[in-house]
Amino acid sequence: MMDLTLLVSSAGRRVALIECFRRSAKANDINLKVLACDREPALSAACKAADRAFVVPGCTHPAFIETMLEIVSDFGVKLVVPTIDPELAPLAEAVPRFAELGARVHVSPPSVIEIVRDKLRTVEVLGRAGVPVPITVSLNAARNCSGPKLWPMLLKPVAGSASRGIRIIRSQSELPDEPEEPMVLQQLLKGPEFTVNMFVDQEGTLRSAIAHRRLRVRAGEVEKGRTEREPLFRMLAEQVCVALPEARGVMCFQLILDETAGPCVFEVNARFGGGYPLAQYAGADYAGWLLREVAGLPSIAHDNWRDGALMLRYDAAFFEG
C-alpha cells in the first residue's frame, strides 16, 4: 500500500470532498493521510473530519503561500487541493515552489485562472472558441451604450462566486453608480440549469464529462441534483477544452438551457465544484484518478458514468465539549 498525504485548502464545510478522497484512496490501495487548513479550523467541519488541521491566513494575505509551503514541507504533502476561487491565483503562481518540495497543486496555470476568474473574459474566450455564451457587457459599457438593452439583466461581480452580490437590474436607471467592486451585466437566462464536471489529464486530454441538472440550489451550490447523459454536454465540454487548452485536472462549468437562446455557458470553475460528490457516486471517480496521477499509477479514467444518479444533500454536524 502506497502512502500519500493530501492537504485540502480553505477546507470549510467540504467534508464530503474529504470523504470522496478517502474512499478513492482505499479503492486504489493508497494509504491516505488528510490534512486540512482554514482561517478558523476550530470552526471548520472539514478540519474536524481531517486527520490534522492547521490555521492559515486568508488567501489574500502575504503569508498565505509561505504558511502553506511550511505545512507541505513539514508533513511531506504530495497533493494540495484548493476549494475556493480566490485562492486559485496565488496558488497557481506558486506552483514551482510547491514542486520543489515534491508537491503537486491541483490548479491550472495562471493563464487559465486569469480567464475563469473574470466573468467578462470568460465569455469572450469561450465565445471565440464557439461555445454558446450569454450576452455579457461591462458596467461601464452598459452605462455608455445608447442602443437597445436586453432588460432585465443580471448584475454580477466580475470575480464573484457562490452567487455573491448578484441581483436583477430591470433598466439602465437601476445601474449602480459606484459599486464596491468591478461588475458585469449578463443576459437573464430562463430554463433548467446544469453543471458539467470535467476531468482533463496531464496531457490535456478530456477523459470524462459528467453533467447533472441542478434541481435545487442553496448559496450558489447544488443541494439536489441528478446526472443526465446528453451528447450536447459532452460537446460543450470539448469546446471548453479548446477554449482553455492549458486547463488541467478537475474543473466544471455551468450552463442554462434558455427557452429562446438555447444552451448558454456562463461560468467556469477551475477546481472541484461543490456538487462533485454526485459525480463520484455516479462512477466518475475524479478524486481517485487525480490520486493515481500523483502516485504515478496508470490512468484508469473513463466516461462510463451512470445516468439518472440522484443526490439529496443535507446538513450534518460535529459536536465537542
Results as ranks from 00 to 15, higher is better:
residue 1 M to L: 12
residue 8 V to K: 02
residue 10 S to V: 08
residue 14 R to I: 05
residue 14 R to D: 03
residue 17 L to K: 01
residue 20 C to I: 02
residue 25 A to T: 12
residue 37 C to E: 10
residue 38 D to E: 15
residue 41 P to L: 02
residue 43 L to P: 00
residue 43 L to T: 14
residue 46 A to L: 03
residue 47 C to K: 00
residue 48 K to R: 12
residue 54 F to H: 05
residue 54 F to L: 12
residue 57 P to A: 11
residue 58 G to C: 08
residue 59 C to R: 00
residue 59 C to S: 15
residue 59 C to N: 10
residue 61 H to E: 03
residue 67 T to Y: 04
residue 68 M to T: 01
residue 70 E to M: 13
residue 71 I to A: 09
residue 74 D to T: 06
residue 75 F to D: 14
residue 76 G to S: 09
residue 78 K to F: 01
residue 79 L to G: 06
residue 81 V to R: 01
residue 86 P to G: 08
residue 90 P to I: 03
residue 98 F to K: 04
residue 100 E to C: 02
residue 102 G to D: 12
residue 107 V to C: 10
residue 114 E to Y: 05
residue 114 E to P: 00
residue 118 D to G: 03
residue 119 K to A: 06
residue 125 V to E: 01
residue 125 V to G: 02
residue 128 R to H: 11
residue 129 A to E: 06
residue 130 G to R: 10
residue 133 V to E: 01
residue 134 P to F: 07
residue 135 I to C: 01
residue 136 T to C: 08
residue 139 L to W: 04
residue 139 L to D: 06
residue 140 N to A: 12
residue 142 A to K: 05
residue 143 R to S: 09
residue 144 N to Y: 02
residue 149 K to Q: 08
residue 149 K to Y: 08
residue 151 W to K: 09
residue 153 M to D: 00
residue 157 P to A: 04
residue 169 I to A: 01
residue 169 I to Q: 03
residue 172 Q to V: 13
residue 173 S to K: 15
residue 176 P to K: 07
residue 179 P to C: 11
residue 180 E to K: 14
residue 183 M to Y: 05
residue 184 V to C: 11
residue 192 P to V: 08
residue 195 T to H: 03
residue 197 N to V: 13
residue 204 G to K: 09
residue 206 L to R: 05
residue 211 A to K: 05
residue 211 A to Y: 11
residue 213 R to M: 05
residue 213 R to L: 14
residue 217 V to M: 15
residue 218 R to H: 09
residue 219 A to F: 03
residue 220 G to D: 14
residue 221 E to V: 15
residue 227 T to R: 05
residue 235 M to P: 00
residue 241 C to P: 01
residue 242 V to K: 13
residue 247 A to H: 10
residue 249 G to W: 06
residue 251 M to I: 09
residue 252 C to F: 13
residue 253 F to E: 04
residue 256 I to D: 00
residue 258 D to R: 05
residue 263 P to A: 09
residue 268 V to G: 04
residue 269 N to R: 10
residue 274 G to T: 12
residue 285 D to C: 13
residue 285 D to G: 07
residue 285 D to Q: 08
residue 288 G to K: 10
residue 294 V to Y: 10
residue 297 L to C: 12
residue 300 I to F: 02
residue 308 G to Q: 06
residue 311 M to D: 06
residue 313 R to D: 07
residue 317 A to S: 14
residue 317 A to N: 04
residue 319 F to P: 03
residue 320 E to Q: 12
residue 320 E to M: 06
